[in-house]
């Protein structure tokens, strides 16, 4: 029973972690809490659904198209909603993010209706039973995809030129521009990367629960934000752990207390962490931004 909950928690936590990384990347590079990020997650699922179920396109092509389009949406959101108020007040950035969120949700509702839709079952679910533990092959795919994406992100940030430029921009954008680097381009790339991760997460979640709905990004977005806060927003490894941890807390509380309280518990934990250790569980005093 406990092992089962841990496995379920790990699966869902890995998805939270992917979404949470988008918050952390945006925060690291612009000091901005991008509350519209959950909608990118939703868009990822819906675009994949459209390409596969409606247009009957090739599955791989559809998946790639979905994440690429979401990457582009991320770039456009940054340019339209955040660029002109980059040095503005936090409150205006927050309002702008919420505005984007409302717009994207409404676009989704108008395009795909407000009904819950079935996500195409591109993988036939197989169940593996070991004693009384149930593992589905989907869980393994989700975990594997999440791990691959996170390792790729790590390599991108810490082993590539783009990564050095992203980290430099997050530390000191003016000086980065003095190095001949186009900071706006780096910020666009960062938003694209975060959005690609978010879209992938949306697709994985669609597969897992096999249904999607236009406002699915809302709760997950908030929870991913909680995960980022838990781990220390702006801190990449911390955010990954924060996501996993939140997944554990949820599934264990669903298993041992009641699944009705799992959302409330997530936010309760966030409040406690913010009160006790505002930089997050894994955050140090000086937050390593990106």
């Amino acid at each position: 029973m406990l092992f089962q909950q841990i496995l379920n928690g790990l699966t869902i936590g890995a998805v939270y972690a992917l979404v949470a990384l988008g918050y952390t990347l945006a925060y690291g590079i612009l000091g901005l809490i991008n509350f519209s990020h959950g909608e990118i997650y939703m868009m990822g699922a819906f675009i994949a659904f459209t390409c596969i179920s409606i247009f009957n396109w090739n599955i791989w092509l559809s998946l790639i198209l979905a994440v690429v389009i979401c990457g582009l949406i991320g770039i456009v959101v940054e340019i339209v909603a955040f660029r002109s108020i980059r040095h503005g007040a936090r409150s205006s950035q927050l309002i702008s993010a919420i505005g984007v969120s409302i717009v994207l949700q409404n676009i989704a509702m108008l395009t795909w209706s407000s009904r819950t839709q079935p996500f195409p079952q591109i993988i036939t679910t197989k169940i593996i039973k070991i004693n009384d533990i149930v593992i589905s092959n989907l869980q393994i795919y989700i975990l594997a995809t999440a791990v691959i994406l996170m390792v790729t992100l790590y390599l991108l940030l810490y082993k590539s030129r783009i990564g050095i430029a992203i980290r430099a921009t997050s530390q000191d954008p003016d000086t980065t521009s003095l190095m001949g680097i186009n900071v706006n381009k780096i910020i666009s790339i960062t938003f694209a990367v975060g959005s690609v991760l978010g879209a992938a997460a949306g697709i994985l979640m669609g597969l897992y629960y096999n249904s999607i709905v236009f406002n699915m990004g809302y709760t997950v977005g908030l929870k991913a934000f909680v995960a980022a806060i838990l781990g220390g927003i702006g801190n990449i490894p911390g955010t990954m752990l924060g996501g996993i941890l939140l997944g554990f807390v949820e599934s264990i509380s669903a298993g041992f207390i009641s699944s009705q309280y799992k959302d409330a518990l997530a936010f309760l934990i966030m409040i406690i962490v913010l009160l006790v250790k505002p930089t997050g569980i894994f955050g140090t005093k000086e937050v390593e931004k990106v």
């Binding site: 050095i164 430029a165 980290r167 000191d172 190095m179 001949g180 680097i181």
Partner: peptide
């Protein structure tokens, strides 16, 4: 000075090559 404090010394130097 405005070096990048959380990049290594080497990364601080290689960043100069990016636009060249």
């Amino acid at each position: 000075r405005h070096i990048f404090p959380r990049l290594t010394v080497k990364e601080n130097l290689t960043i100069s090559s990016f636009s060249r």
